[in-house]
Design a protein around this nucleic acid. Structure first.
Lengths: 329, 329
DNA sequence: TTGAAAGCGGTACCAA
DNA sequence: TTGGTACCGCTTTCAA
């Protein structure tokens, strides 16, 4: 591999000059520049990211921290982030936090050490202090699906509450009168927001009852169990709003086994809009703009990295109601 | 952040000595070592990966190239790779190749440049030359789901043909007599292997007919279309072996729409054993040990990185038949 | 057993 | 506009 020195020799200039044309910084004569570029070309020279980052520049690497890439929501996010990053010449390090603060700290250490330029955090367990700490080390950070209103941290979030409202209203429109909710883990902010949206509409219609709510785990299994419990308490349930699509799938299974036909007996709607909601019957859902979130997060991150002005607030994204078979007779 | 020089000063030794204790290389007096460790401790010193890799050591980073992390097979693989790597102090860069040779080359360039220690390639479009080229730059490589018998490249593969045989035999056992196959893209090796396994058994039983085979794309959509075509030609199909689970889900939808009950009218089996085959009815499948593949690949890669002896051949992994609802009355 | 010093491949400041 | 050169933080001969 050719080095900057090889280039400088071939072009008969100093390394400083070569560095200048590489970075388009400082003055450099057109003729000289041409010569340098020529030399780079013939040596098929590529500056070493390693060396650049050591010398204080950026590493052209960002990290994406997700709870678990196995959850189908995150591959979609990862894909969008990776695409956007790659387009900008960045490389993405993937981290699975498993909601484990210990593991998270561990990652943060590794990443700091690697002089990562920035981090996108889609893990619910981080503490705002950790992000601020990063920023102090001039590592940019963007948070997804969480927010820290009292800290200068850029966050991205779907309109969870509004989405929940849309979901429940949709079930009401379809004629449901006994609507249950399978919530996500309540220590997770979006779960609480969705629950709140549900509660809001139910109270509006005088239909609210705590026993219509069961807490799941954002996984198929938890949705399944929650649905079973709910059916035990309320065999007359005719509408279910699940806090995410995976739990909706679990609920679907439970309903199927209980002999309830979807959507004839029970209408079911999820949240997220993950691609694999391609089950039979197809799942109605509140779709988050996952890909857009990833793209936006990456762009905001880049802005921070380049010290361009960005508002460090929570940016909210619109969700859409996707009506499919599970709520349509 | 403390540097090696800070440590050396505090411990009253040279940086060389500190380096020695860090790397456990060369001789160093016990007392001195203790002092150095003490100093590292009090400064909570962590050596910079950047600097180390620049100085010629390893970057403690590997890359995983997949066609598309959106395909549920790959998150499982990625998760296993990341876990194994993380445990060994390595960081994983994720790349989506999209089967695009151009993009692949691009990634290879970036990765070489970043002095990545090794690459796990689960992309079907790479050329063996590219891998050899890497090895020449002393970047380790392991290939998944592909193999290059005539090159010294370490590969990992499931027993695709055997798996296909198991699948078809299972359908026969269940009493199927008209068994169709939805194959993956035939330019992909595992697709061909699975097709071969299917063909083998069908011929054995004098049931083979080319029109019972339709080519899909490894995605839900392609499985759906292929199933529709097959039904047109053979309304009497009573068994389907799909080349992967996603296509099986597509087939399931097509069957459902065509009014065929699964498993009563048609028995259906997939391949891969991805977690989200949790549709209703649950899909029978030939499960690949995806997590194990990821783990093994990572370990083999590490071996190569550390110049430990490894056989650069294709290692084959066993698959298992998972009987679930889609083939059980 | 230890230390001095020459890189690794760049960046950037200061002179020329 | 250019070039010289001192780093960035660590590894690794080579001598002492």
């Amino acid at each position: 591999m050719a080095t900057i020195r090889d280039v400088s020799k071939l072009a008969n200039v100093s390394v400083a000059t070569v560095s200048r044309v590489i970075n388009q910084s400082g003055y450099v004569n057109e003729v000289t520049e041409k010569a340098v570029r020529q030399a780079m070309e013939t040596l098929s020279y590529v500056p070493s990211d390693m060396a650049r980052s050591l010398a204080g520049k950026k590493s052209a690497t960002i990290a994406l921290i997700v709870p678990d890439i196995l959850n189908p929501f995150f591959p979609e996010l990862a894909r969008a982030v990776e695409d956007a990053a790659h387009q900008l010449g960045y490389t993405v390090i993937l981290c699975n936090s498993d909601h484990d603060p210990e593991k998270e700290r561990n990652y943060f250490g590794m990443l700091k050490n690697k002089r990562i330029d920035g981090i996108i955090v889609a893990s619910y367990t981080i503490h705002p202090q950790q992000l601020l700490e990063l920023q102090r080390q001039s590592i940019a950070a963007v948070v997804i699906d969480n927010h820290f209103p009292s800290h200068p941290i850029l966050a991205l979030q779907s309109k969870n509450r509004e989405g929940a409202v849309m979901a429940v209203r949709h079930l009401l429109d379809r004629g449901c009168t006994t609507i249950a909710h399978i919530s996500g883990p309540l220590e997770i902010l979006p779960s609480r927001e969705r629950l709140l949206g549900y509660e809001l509409v139910m109270r509006e219609h005088g239909m609210f009852a705590p026993s219509l709510i069961a807490e799941g785990d954002f996984h198929v299994e938890g949705g399944y169990r929650a649905m079973q419990e709910l059916l035990k308490l309320h065999p007359d349930i005719d509408g279910v709003f699940a806090g995410n699509d995976l739990m909706a799938i679990g609920a679907l299974k439970a309903l199927y086994i209980a002999g309830k036909a979807v959507p004839q007996d029970v209408k079911l709607i999820g949240f997220d809009g993950i691609a694999l909601a391609t089950v039979v019957p197809e799942l109605s859902t509140i779709a988050q703009p996952i890909a857009e979130m990833g793209k936006l997060a990456t762009h905001y991150l880049m802005r921070q990295i380049r010290n361009e002005p960005v508002e460090c607030k929570t940016h909210e994204l619109d969700v859409r109601l996707l009506v499919r078979q599970s709520t349509t007779d």
